[in-house]
Amino acid sequence: MPDLTLTPTPPLDGYAQDFAGTRLAEASELAIVAVATPAGGETALEAAVKAAYGTGTPAPGASILSKDGKARLVWSGPDQMFLLFTHDAPDAEAGVAAALGQAGYCTDQTGVWAALEISGPGVRGALERLCPLDLHPDAFAEGAAARTVMEHMGAFVIRTGSDAFLLLSASSSAKSFLHAVELSVRNTA
């Protein structure tokens, strides 16, 4: 009987590449858990998040870091947020659910998304070829988070630094998404 232990493969196979002025790298151990607010449970969830993560819930269009800086809470809809944190086992949902108790409905989204970090001085020039959002720092400050569409693919754009963004796009089309981002970088390099 062969050893059938399963080894995970991140959607971009751990891709990382440096271009002139821009670095692209998969955040291959990023876990994502969606938390939905039960109807009428806003206060309870707010309290549970405060207790578990030392912060409030994110406002529309924004993300905030947990007090220990290890988790990013991203507003993803009127009664939903995404929790992003580094975690390399397939039990992220259980951890969040345990931390929040019954205050939120948790759904693992880790496998739904491919996470691509893009950083460097050329980053805005590259994203200009792809992203309809206004990424000027006045309009999209650090921590800002938005879901939009690029080359027909839905994507979250989260500003993690002055020249750094985290992009989330569907894992099934991750290779097409990477190609689109790479091409934008090359076209503007």
Partner: peptide
């Protein structure tokens, strides 16, 4: 209108 490529509102 549905904000399909956005917040799903």
């Amino acid at each position: 209108w549905f904000h399909e490529q956005g917040d799903r509102s």
